[in-house]
Design a protein around this nucleic acid. Structure first.
Lengths: 334, 334
DNA sequence: TTGTACGCGTTATCAG
DNA sequence: CTGATAACGCGTACAA
């Protein structure tokens, strides 16, 4: 059961490989009707399928891109991926998906392997730890885009949420409702991941703009496993928070759990605003006020830009930061 | 800025391509130390990267597999994908991800393209509408696995949840708690997708086993957009349901919304069991009783089997149905 | 140990 | 309109 190649088809149709190749590439400017027919016939009879690897070798293009996310279990990543895949499908590209798990080594290995596999471009949620590597690809003019995270001084198109604004919207809303002692909770602050640092930054700025003093004790960063203890600690303070911003969906669930276990009334005892839309926001009791942003659109725009750069319709050298606006969805938790 | 090939390295090191190739493939059984050093040196200086496409053409293997899911926005798909990616990463394979959107045409196009791209194997959440195509691949001995959905009479390894049992567990639990008028809600029943039909089947069987008559009006299938109206209709019946099984997470949210809007008390007015674990199950009021199953494990096992078949460590001809056990997580909604 | 020559499947070029 | 022939980059007998 040997694979049939273009040579077999040629032999079967009694013509040369080149003619068959032309046929396959729709270059029948001057091809005889009868020849066309014979080729079509042979292809059908032999059930010939072109070998795209061979074509890629010759054409130096694979019609495949790579996407390296931190972790595709995150809802945001999933939505971005889905958008990318949709755009690629529409333009006959395929997508190789990888999880870096925020591990620079893993990220590096993936980038190098995908590059070696000759993918035509890459969309990365960067760990930020492989600057030289990123830089090398830019110099090579390799189509590369960053998503969700920014890496300083690198001249690479980046698609980001207006994170400071997201935090500001939350603070403003709390203030307008008369809340005091507003806290913010995110995952560990150690890692300087763009969304986290920007959100905290925006939180601070917004407080200052309202003439409220920033209290470090209200800026909480903790690994998910230890959030409950941490929360307990913070809410045992003489002046505990009366309002809290959840830095993302996971952290929001932790807060809700804590509030529930301690029988705190929302929004009376504690106001809550979650950054990230969650599936259960509108059915929760009370319905949760959240801040959402256009994940799908971000993925779509990124994919479209990448494909343009791949086709050189867009200058692969110029680069900018694309910012997306967060939006308050007011419900009842604040 | 020309690409460096193995020939350039050879020239630079003043030896032949074959020697370099051997070096790259760790076949230095009899290679001179000095030669090895020279090669390493040249590779570094020229920053040579092997072209994997060329290697694939020669070796007829791409170290890439394809996964076609119905829609990667579904939590189950995401978890399965993540597991597959983990296994593949550990064995240096890459994963191309595609969304069929339950469209047989799209599925067909993907399968054919991926095949042409010479992926080494495929894991598919089948639409079920491309039997001939699936069959062709089996005959070709192409490594192919099905996930979540079963296609009759096809001799292809399939990884499925014990769906009937999941429904049975729910029914049994309701009955043991003294509930009557137990309904089941799924998305449209028209499409004969394995999980849906098996769950309804299991529901019926379980009721019968308890000597309870099956009422067609309690078997509800509806598109997500119209679920609210449908629910309104069903709960206006003379004897409305007192308990309801949510066929999946999306449908569960719809039920919760309906219950909330109509101020129904859970579990007093209405008992609820959701098939599919959801992130907010334990923080909801009341905490939701759900039935979960090992998605990650399913993806992991599938990927491992696929890679074995690819390496011919496993007979690609033999095939079986792998069933996974659902588990009741009792909380307070029933 | 190393070098030569050829194959992998397709496409591009250039005669005819 | 069609057909040789040479790439594309790598791997590998086989020869030396």
């Amino acid at each position: 059961m040997k694979k049939i190649t273009i040579a077999d088809v040629a032999k079967h149709a009694n013509i040369s490989k080149s003619t068959v190749s032309q046929y396959l590439n729709n270059r029948f400017d001057y091809m005889g009707e009868k020849t066309k027919e014979r080729i079509a016939q042979s292809i059908r009879e032999l059930d010939y399928k072109p070998n795209i690897v061979a074509r890629s070798l010759k054409q130096k293009t694979t019609f495949t891109i790579g996407v390296i996310v931190a972790n595709m279990l995150h809802v945001f990543s999933t939505q971005v991926l889905r958008a990318i895949e949709d755009v690629c499908h529409a333009q006959d590209y395929h997508v190789i998906v990888c999880n870096s798990d925020d591990d620079p080594k893993k990220e590096k290995k993936y980038i190098e392997m995908l590059h070696a596999k000759q993918v035509d471009g890459l969309i990365v949620f960067p760990t930020g730890e492989n600057k030289e590597l990123y830089e090398g690809m830019v110099n090579e003019q390799f189509p590369l885009l960053f998503m969700d995270r920014f890496v300083e001084g690198l001249n690479i198109d980046s698609f980001l949420i207006e994170n400071e604004k997201a935090a500001k919207i939350a603070v403003d809303h709390f203030v307008s409702k008369g809340y005091e002692n507003i806290a913010i909770l995110t995952k560990e602050l150690l890692k300087n991941v763009t969304p986290r640092v920007e959100r905290v930054q925006g939180y601070k700025k917004a407080l200052k703009a309202h003439g409220i003093e920033v209290a470090e004790k209200f800026i909480i960063g903790e690994e998910v496993e230890h959030i409950q203890e941490k929360l307990k600690e913070v809410f045992s303070l003489p002046t505990p928070p009366r309002a809290i911003i959840a830095g993302n969906d996971l952290v929001l669930i932790q807060i809700l759990q804590f509030a529930k276990e301690n029988e705190m009334n929302i929004p009376e005892d504690l106001g809550i605003i979650g950054i990230d839309e969650v599936s259960f926001a509108s059915i929760y009791s009370p319905p949760l006020t959240t801040i959402s942003y256009p994940s799908y659109e971000m993925g779509k725009d990124a994919a479209e830009l990448l494909l343009k750069k791949i086709r050189k319709e867009e200058n692969s050298m110029s680069s900018e930061i694309h910012r997306y606006q967060p939006e308050l969805i007011e419900r009842r938790s604040c």
